[in-house]
């Protein structure tokens, strides 16, 4: 018995679902659109070239300066330190979980990593501010513990869950026959791990590190609370710095709407967006191309 009403319902449902699914695409478009919309007038005045400088002095009685170099180098420095911290822990942790730990051990330990991934960044930043920074200050005999090094340590910690879980997936998808062949040839467990399993999973691990770095670059609250809030161009780990994210979050609240400063902050946002966007695309490409499982 043909029921036209059902057919009509079916059609409606499908159209609704297509519309819902396209919101993601629209949203990405809107993000780019609105960032550029707010940033655009800056191009005419004071001009994009004023972003290319090494002084970020957005509020000044004489001449405001919007050189973003100190913010970019701040982000790069903190990200580099975080990566140096996170990669060994994340990768070795993943190897340990997937190749060494017994199932019961994995089940006990993994919740700790999920726990770490769940702690809000402002809480981690608070811990960094009141516990880690004084510790770093005392341990290295510094004037202040609020510097790029402390920020890098915290952000490294926050990137570990991402790096670990993606690396673990990559390691677990290495075919068992590879390992069996190595063991059959007389390789011991550790030789099999470092010469067979890890190299076979390397593309996935590289992608994991890139995704972790994407998270670090975009992290805001923790880094804002512990890096010392000084926009200066430096590559010394024990100096105070100011990242791009922290600058936006700290200054956007007080900036007059529509001012040059306001628009400059949107440019900083665009740079951030493009940087994380590129990192993610490359990481996804690597994951897709080399994934053994698919």
């Amino acid at each position: 018995m043909p029921r036209p009403r059902t057919k009509w319902t079916e059609r409606c449902v499908e159209v609704t679902l297509v519309v819902a699914a396209s919101t993601s695409i629209i949203l990405v478009g809107l993000i780019f659109l609105f960032l550029f919309r707010e940033a655009a007038p800056f191009v005419q005045h004071p001009g994009l070239s004023s972003l290319m400088g090494d002084r970020w002095i957005p509020v000044s009685f004489q001449k405001e300066q919007f050189g973003i170099y100190p913010l970019v180098t701040g982000s790069i420095l903190v990200t580099a330190i975080a990566t140096v911290v996170a990669v060994p822990f994340g990768v070795i942790g993943a190897v340990y979980l997937s190749e060494v730990a017994r199932p019961a051990e994995t089940e006990t330990l993994k919740p700790f990593i999920e726990l770490l991934a769940g702690i809000p960044s402002v809480v981690i930043g608070f811990f960094g501010l009141v516990v880690l920074a004084p510790f770093v200050k005392a341990a290295f005999g510094l004037e202040t513990g609020l510097n790029a090094f402390t920020g890098g340590l915290l952000l490294g910690l926050m990137a570990i869950p991402t790096i670990m879980s993606v690396s673990e997936d990559a390691l677990r998808s290495v075919p068992a026959s590879y390992k069996q062949a190595s063991l059959a040839l007389g390789g011991n467990q550790i030789q099999t791990i470092w010469r067979i399993t890890v190299p076979a999973a390397l593309p996935g691990i590289v992608a994991a590190v890139m995704l972790g770095m994407g998270r670090v670059i975009g992290e805001t609250m923790a880094v804002m609370m512990v890096t010392g809030d000084a926009a200066q161009t430096t590559f010394k780990p024990f100096e105070s710095v100011r990242t791009m994210t922290a600058t936006i979050a700290a200054e956007m609240g007080e900036v007059p709407f529509g001012s040059d400063h306001y628009r400059a902050l949107f440019w900083v946002g665009i740079i951030l967006l493009v940087a994380t966007f590129l990192l993610n695309i490359v990481a996804q490409r690597v994951l897709k191309r080399y994934s053994v499982r698919q």
């Binding site: 993601s24 993000i31 975009g218 979050a249 956007m252 967006l273 990192l279």
Partner: peptide, 25 residues
């Protein structure tokens, strides 16, 4: 493919950039 790409992209956008977007829109 476009939808999947958009979802992955959204997942990678830093939260402070979402803040800027929310402010603008």
């Amino acid at each position: 493919r476009g939808v999947r790409f958009a979802i992955i992209t959204l997942a990678g956008v830093p939260s402070v950039v979402f803040g800027l977007f929310g402010l603008g829109l």
